[in-house]
């Protein structure tokens, strides 16, 4: 067999990792500004603490390994995202604790398996906070800066149900209108505000690179179809579908968590498969588990199967090609 030496000698103008990261941070700024409008300066303080924690870990690892000191953009991205998954009323140090868990896990995985998928670490950090501090992590209040001093460790607020929690009742009686859900004036994680802005972020990112669009669309489609076929509040079908799709961090994950390197399978076919399975698992999680924010958990469970989705797609295509060429001879 002929072995090709250094091909190719010309390169396509694909976006470099750095360019992709810069687009991602630009999109994050968009949602950050909206969240700042609703949640006030506490968001900035929480984000700053998380970023400091991530940077400190990166530097510590470099020091211990005797490498040049540097802070990776992936760690920064993960820290910001984990903070955006928290409500604005969260304990001031809680996101930083989640970041610490995430960074420790990353190093352990690197040590034992030589690889640490960023998305798994992020979802694991989320799960740690969700399962160890559920009271604080899932206490949502109506957005508003009043009574949320930016640097107070804890904030006492009146708990308000998030849109997906409202679906547990027989009828949807809430303080939120459809406009509130779309524009972000609702209870929930800091980053999950404003479905319109999140969709705009997805569109912006897809315009620049198309990696995760299929997964996002697949998941939203799966959730929508399930919500239409098996509505939780049949009397208010459309509101029920809207809450199902726009609530529970699904869009936040679709917009940002999927953009974390390694979050989705490599191939387009695999990405569709992941999206659909992720959507279905999210629906199942919401209805079976008492957790409304099932999207990150479902993503964590599915990430190890990304390679499997790619492989399955490859095998299906191989089979299809063989089937098409059946009986056709070449020389």
């Amino acid at each position: 067999m002929k072995l090709y030496s250094h091909a190719p000698f010309v390169r396509g103008g694909e976006r470099t990792p750095r360019a992709r990261m810069s687009f991602l941070f630009a999109a994050l700024t968009g949602i950050g500004v909206l969240s700042l409008y609703y949640n006030g300066p506490r968001l900035l303080v929480l984000t700053a603490i998380s970023l400091c924690m991530a940077a400190a870990f990166d530097l510590l690892v470099c020091l211990l390994a005797g490498q040049r000191l540097r802070v990776t953009s992936e760690s920064m991205l993960q820290a910001v995202l984990l903070t955006l998954f928290c409500p604005a009323t969260v304990h001031l140090l809680l996101p930083a604790v989640g970041v610490a868990v995430m960074m420790i896990l990353k190093q352990l995985l690197r040590m034992f398996f030589r690889q640490a998928p960023h998305i798994s670490c992020l979802c694991a950090g989320w799960c740690f906070l969700a399962f160890c501090f559920p009271a604080n992590f899932f206490t949502y209040a109506k957005p508003g800066v009043e009574g949320w001093p930016p640097i107070a460790m804890t904030v006492a607020v009146e708990k308000v149900a998030s849109p997906t929690e409202l679906l547990r009742g027989d009828a949807i009686a809430s303080d939120f209108s459809v406009i509130d859900v779309l524009l972000g004036n609702l209870a929930g994680p800091m980053g999950a505000c404003g479905a319109v802005v999140l969709i705009a972020c997805i569109a912006f990112l897809c315009f620049h690179y198309r990696t995760a669009l299929r997964t996002a669309v697949g998941a939203v489609l799966a959730v929508t179809v399930c919500a239409l076929l098996f509505p939780r509040v049949p009397q208010e079908l459309l509101l029920s579908v809207l809450f199902e799709v726009c609530g529970g961090s699904l869009l936040l994950c679709a917009a940002f968590a999927l953009q974390v390197p390694g979050a989705v399978p490599l191939t387009h076919g695999g990405q569709w498969m992941l999206g659909i399975v992720w959507g279905l698992l999210t629906v199942v999680g919401r209805r079976v588990l008492p957790i409304e924010q099932a999207a990150p958990l479902a993503l964590l469970l599915l990430t190890p199967f990304n390679f499997g989705f790619d492989l399955l797609r490859g095998q299906l295509l191989r089979g299809w090609r063989k089937f098409r060429l059946l009986g056709r001879k070449s020389v």
Binding site: R20, P261, L266, D310, L317
Partner: peptide, 22 residues
């Protein structure tokens, strides 16, 4: 060469539907 960041371009471009990075 820089480290792979999992963009998937190589897998989607392969006419043989292989997964080059894997």
């Amino acid at each position: 060469a820089k480290p792979c960041f999992g963009c998937g371009a190589c897998a989607n471009v392969c006419p043989q539907n292989l997964l080059p990075i894997h």
